[in-house]
Design a protein around this nucleic acid. Structure first.
Lengths: 215, 215
DNA sequence: GGATGTGAATGCATTCACAGCA
DNA sequence: TGCTGTGAATGCATTCACATCC
């Protein structure tokens, strides 16, 4: 199995396939074809098969894919067949919402501790997760073998937080601060900028208007 | 100016250029080169110039780009040179966090009303935004000329909400529900799945491990 | 010298089309 | 017949390299 040469877009789609398969599984479906799996996601059947092919053989010609084992294999590829403990840095509005979000656990992510620069928040529980002062970060990270963290602090402190997390040995951060955090050879970074998402939508909507002028 | 033939990745980068330029502007910088603009974002100088070229001429050979006018033009292209009023459907944890998020306004997005299936939430204000029962959606949409909405409801009601928004004349939705919402010719969709973002990070971190095995 | 704008060349991702299997 | 897996072909995005201008 080749380790690299995998298109990044394919990895992104893998997550969507998995999500869709979990829906099918919940609906009791046992088998699925590449066509069926793709069309709910706006992806061609060839694309689905090619994406899987980067990682090995998954299906049975003439039959399709068995839902349950396919889910297992995708989870293994994505690394979510075991639980990841995750830190949340920043217990403001966004951080608090993430701490209360129920969708992470069933995907294999457990938010185990939150940190905030405002020491008066220490001792609180948000969504069942304890909030600590910043200087407890290293201790907690080591204790729970943490490798992932979510950054939900203001833009002006995001880089400092990232540096600190890297120093502690964190390997991946999901960055919600609206500022670029450059990845390093030992720190993977994935960014979500909420305002940018709306901005993209704004562009798309303007395009729609130009194609079919307002009625 | 050609209307299409624009790579979607280029549009995404445009938002990041804009964000970076706003940072430079806040720091008092007046001019910037494609190289300087790109390197903070991990993008080559040629890429920056090519991205701009899809939309026209922006700079001065030998000189670079003027920060202020470039910002104006990017905002115009992205459609954020005027304010968009936005609805938020779903006032649970995530919806409430979005309603309190301060980053939207300075980007030209004003969240003007929230809606929740739980009618007992009606009358509340979250982040200064009033919460209404669902059946007020159409009235508010017309009154404020709304074209964009954020979906922050559970997966099982997301499609119904999207259909309703489309019927009301909404043209773009930002979907936070972990389920695919297919776009239509009159409704643009942009999706953010928080768990999927962590999943992608999980994959990337596992890759790092394989390149440089744990110390 | 230092920078943009842009055709040409490259490289990457998607789609096609079909051999092979159930 | 129905469907996967996959080399080949296509198409799209990025990078190169250079003419042009300050």
């Amino acid at each position: 199995m080749k380790l690299n040469g995998i298109p990044l877009p394919a990895v992104k789609r893998l997550s969507l396939y998995l999500r869709q398969l979990e829906l099918l599984q919940a609906g009791g479906q046992k088998r699925v074809s590449s066509r069926q799996l793709g069309e709910s996601l706006g992806v061609t059947d060839a694309q689905v098969r090619k994406d899987f092919a980067y990682f090995g053989q998954f299906g049975h010609p003439g039959v399709g894919y068995q839902v349950d084992p396919l889910i297992q294999r995708l989870r293994h590829i994505l690394g979510t067949d075991k639980v990841w403990n995750v830190l949340v840095v920043g217990a403001g509005n966004l951080g608090r919402a993430l701490l209360q979000y129920k969708g992470f656990v069933q995907k294999g992510f457990r938010l185990v501790a939150a940190f905030d620069a405002d020491a008066s928040k220490a001792g609180q529980f948000v969504g069942g997760v304890p909030v600590f002062p910043m200087d407890e970060m290293e201790r907690m990270a080591l204790q729970f073998h943490i490798r992932l963290a979510i950054i939900a602090v203001p833009a002006d402190s995001a880089q400092a937080v990232a540096d600190r997390l890297a120093a502690i040995g964190i390997q991946g951060v999901l960055n919600f601060a609206p500022i670029p955090l450059p990845p390093t050879p030992t720190l993977a970074v994935n960014a979500v900028d909420l305002a940018v998402q709306l901005e993209q939508l704004s562009f798309q909507v303007n395009l729609l208007d130009q194609e079919q002028p307002a009625q």
